[in-house]
């Protein structure tokens, strides 16, 4: 599934033009990205949470050369699926 399939679904369901449906789907992901960029957590009930974690710098190794390197501190994004989503994927 890609963005185009999501657009198709919106288009069928709501009946706006394809152009409008495309724009709004694009906007939804852009709004989410902008908030994550500002360090905010995103909670979509029934789907899951997108949370940011701050990693401290740590030592690593280049697996090809064995050379020791410092992996810089960074902020990473992770997804925590909601129990509703987990259930949808694992029907009883």
């Amino acid at each position: 599934m890609t963005k185009a399939d999501i657009v198709e679904r919106i288009y069928e369901k709501v009946g706006f033009s394809k152009k409008e449906a495309t724009d709004v789907v694009e906007s939804i992901f852009e709004i989410i990205k902008a908030h994550l960029e500002r360090g905010e957590k995103i909670k979509i009930s029934g789907f899951g949470n997108f949370v940011l974690n701050t990693k401290r710098p740590r030592k690593g190794r280049n697996p090809q050369t064995g050379e020791e390197i410092v992996i810089s501190g960074r902020r990473v994004l992770s997804f925590k699926p909601s129990p509703v989503l987990k259930k949808a994927i694992n029907p009883l």
Binding site: M1, T2, K3, D5, I6, V25, I44, A88
Partner: peptide, 19 residues
Amino acid sequence: AVFDSMTDALAKGERIEIR
């Protein structure tokens, strides 16, 4: 509809890719 369609796709075992 956006999140429902994503949930449905995952329930079918489909991969989702959002550029």
